[in-house]
Design a protein around this nucleic acid. Structure first.
Lengths: 211, 211
DNA sequence: GCGTCCATGTAAATGGTTACATGATTAT
DNA sequence: ATAATCATGTAACCATTTACATGGACGC
């Protein structure tokens, strides 16, 4: 999605400034699958204004810099509706970590372990954040939540929980299966530990309710 | 990862041409978490050659255009090892589909259903592809597989299976919970169907072996 | 005949990140 | 004091995608 549409999406949750749009992407419910920065937000807002999809209102503030509050016009709402209905570009997932892990045998065992541990911590943090079921969609407390945001949040949780479980279950497979240059592949003594760590585990495919 | 490192990664699986590098990213084991196109590959190979990280050999072919076969130098191997050991940039996941679904109430129910169905088909295709356990890492048949590629492939499978299950279990929640403008939110008759579709389901967190 | 695969490469256009410039307030 | 938060905006830089240019072989 181009930045303009992304801005409209943020604005859909209520009028706000460019600065606040970024916060909505950093902390809000979009953050886990879209990303923008100031350098693209401000020019986008400019264009949206020129095209009549949003309006600006200068707002003076006490002890704060003035801000420009942007608000969607009816055309803006239409444009957003049009955009979300077009065929979406395929998901893009880029992971340098997976690239590194693919070449696990090129890096020292402790470094590999460190990378994996860090990733586990990151997934834990994200799961924690997505778990606090706050009404993050900006429609005040306890509106009957629309299914869209709920569905998206739930999918995020599912993915990160699945990754977390996978990393926890299989890090030993990775790290213990990681033969350093000094190890004899044929194994002399430290052999026959056909333990947990020699097979990949996959989460069960059954799915129960956990609300 | 910059394209140069990505090319080295592809070349690590054996010497090949720029054209074949792209194929390794399209079909090979990297494809699901990294992406490159010709426009970036050829300049990258140029720079790698200039920097002495790869060598080129012109190779004439029968009934085919000549090709340039690139091969890593010792420095190239070192450079790759150095790169995979540096702190990886955080994963980037961009999904226009999730953005659209977030605003599910802005698009017609049938369009929403179509988008979800398509995504289910895509996940099914990917799961199928990752499931055929071919020794995709280019080291010939039945080498004792290195843990890196195995781990990465397993994680890909886990993620896509989790997504697939989630979409299947919760599409009704999304689509039936999707009130069109004509529906009365207070519900007159078609009420009290507190069925499957009014709650989100999450896969069980238990994990068993499926080899 | 038309499309696709093979194969390399360049150039233009696109779009985004990073850094810079500015500056008050508040918290540590 | 120092850093972070609030707040907007521009410009330089970077990288990537897309389109173009070229052309033979092969299958339908």
């Amino acid at each position: 999605m181009d930045t303009r549409t992304l801005c409209l999406g943020a604005l859909k949750q209520g009028p706000c400034s460019g600065y606040e749009i970024r916060k909505r992407f950093e902390e809000g419910p979009f953050g886990h699958f879209q990303d923008i920065s100031f350098g693209s937000i401000y020019p986008a807002l400019r264009r949206l204004t020129d095209d009549g999809l949003v309006t600006v209102t200068d707002q003076e503030q006490d002890r704060r810099p003035d801000k420009k509050v942007y608000e969607m016009t009816p055309q803006g709402h239409l444009a957003l509706a049009r955009m979300v209905s077009t065929d979406p570009a395929s998901d893009k997932f880029r992971s340098d970590l997976l690239f590194s892990i693919f070449f696990a045998d090129l890096l020292p065992a402790d470094r590999l372990a460190e990378l994996v541990e860090n990733r586990i911590l990151q997934h834990e943090a994200i799961v924690r954040e997505l778990s606090k079921c706050e009404d993050d969609d900006g429609h005040g407390p306890h509106c009957p939540t629309r299914p869209g945001p709920e569905f998206v949040r739930g999918l995020g949780l599912t993915i990160h929980r699945a990754c977390l479980a996978y990393y926890r279950n299989n890090r030993n497979f990775l790290i213990e299966g990681h033969l350093t240059d000094n190890d004899e592949p044929t194994g002399g003594k430290s052999d026959s530990h056909a333990s947990d760590s020699d097979r990949l585990r996959q989460p069960a495919t059954t799915s129960g309710r956990t609300t």
